[in-house]
Computed example of a mutant assay.
Amino acid sequence: MFATRIVSRQVFGAPRWAQARFVSTLEGNPHIYVFPSERPSNSYILSLLPSEPVNPDLAIGVSSKLPPTPDSLTENPKFLSILQEVLAKHAHEDPDAQSQAQVMASTSGANLYTGGVLTAHRRGKRRRSEMGDSSGGASGQGGAGSAGRGGWIHVSDSRRPPEFGRIAWPEDIFGSLEVDGNGQFVGGDGKYQASGTYRMITRNGILGLTPFLREKLVQRLRELEK
């Protein structure tokens, strides 16, 4: 699923012959950079920032092998906290989330949204029954109501898009935003609620954000890096 690839960077202020530097990224995930880790040895730091030396407090986590797996990756709780901070501030500004909110309020209602992050109550029940009692957090909220009544949209990882009319697995849901019957976010920002069930990596892949949210997250990481 994963491999590494090498990308070059320019180092300004250095002699021309020394300007090319090479940074590994995960193949299929060009926004995730890979750095060798000294502690523990023979492991790799995964980060959304290409900066060296890498700041482990801002990294996604450390993997004991490449490609990373759910068993090899040790998630960085500080990064997850930063991620949720960014989502709470900007998720309602994401064009994808805004589009989903409008669909929920349309005459088609949540049941017809193909992305699966909008859920009508009965759909949520069906999904949870299929999954046993493993669902929770945002996924357990379902998408109360139907067209014209509002409800919840789930902000989900893009690594495993759900099937038509379904919601994402709990491990893929970052959190939820509340939408009113007019397709507007309640309180102006949707009152984002973290799911508490999200996992940075699963068998289906590692962290996947929309371009808008990834940009906001990288901006925040760069601020903290300074």
Rank of each mutant, 00 (worst) to 15 (best):
P170T: 04
G175E: 11
L177R: 02
E171Y: 09
A168F: 00
R149N: 15
F164R: 04
D172F: 00
R149I: 01
P170E: 11
P161G: 13
G165H: 07
R159I: 10
A147W: 15
R160Y: 13
G175Q: 09
I167H: 00
P162L: 10
E163V: 12
P161R: 14
G165D: 02
E163L: 14
G150W: 14
A147Q: 15
G150C: 04
L177A: 04
L177F: 08
R166W: 15
G145C: 07
S158G: 14
R160M: 02
F174N: 13
R160W: 06
H154K: 06
H154W: 01
S156L: 08
I153E: 03
L177V: 06
I173E: 01
S146V: 02
D172N: 04
W152N: 01
S146T: 11
H154S: 02
G148D: 14
V155Q: 06
S176C: 08
P170F: 11
I167F: 03
S176V: 03
R160S: 09
R149D: 08
D172E: 07
R166M: 14
I167L: 08
P161A: 10
E163P: 06
S176A: 10
A168V: 03
R149G: 11
H154V: 01
S176Y: 02
F174S: 12
R160H: 15
R159W: 06
H154P: 00
W152M: 02
P162W: 03
W152G: 00
L177D: 01
R160V: 02
V155T: 08
G150M: 04
D157H: 07
G150L: 11
R159L: 04
E171G: 09
R166V: 09
F164Q: 02
E171K: 12
G175F: 08
G148C: 12
R166P: 10
A147P: 13
R149P: 09
P161D: 15
G150Q: 15
G145D: 13
I173G: 03
G151K: 02
F174T: 15
G165I: 03
I167K: 01
H154M: 05
W152R: 01
W169F: 10
I153R: 12
A147T: 14
V155S: 01
F164G: 04
R166K: 13
R159P: 09
S156R: 05
G145M: 06
G175H: 14
A147C: 13
G151Q: 03
F164Y: 14
P161H: 15
R149Q: 14
W169I: 04
E163W: 12
P170Y: 06
G145Y: 09
G165N: 06
D157A: 00
